[in-house]
């Protein structure tokens, strides 16, 4: 089973190639949508990006996040996504 974080980062940059092109640093702490703290990195995904990310991760890991208690509204950071996927494995 591949490590989750690199796969999440790979899928984020596939969905949003501009993040790869801008060499944005994507870490567990990166906010998926926006950050209330201006010093914290934010990827500025939109809800469609987030849904597409979940679809990709479900296919990649053979999991069903929709069948868990995970809600997209609970996912604020890359780390939240990693934890959700890990919890469903």
């Amino acid at each position: 089973m591949p490590e989750v974080l690199p796969v999440v980062i790979k899928e984020i940059t596939r969905i949003r190639p501009d993040l790869r092109e801008s060499h944005a640093s994507i870490t567990r702490e990166s906010a998926l949508f926006y950050a209330t703290d201006p010093d914290r990195p934010a990827l500025e995904l939109d809800s469609m990006d987030a849904l597409e990310l979940l679809v990709a991760l479900e296919q990649e890991f053979g999991i069903e996040l929709a069948a868990t208690s995970t809600r997209t509204s609970d996912l604020h950071t890359v780390g939240d996504v990693v934890d959700a996927v890990s919890g469903a494995l």
Partner: peptide
Amino acid sequence: GWSRMDRL
């Protein structure tokens, strides 16, 4: 099943 439907 519903949880494997196309999310989009």
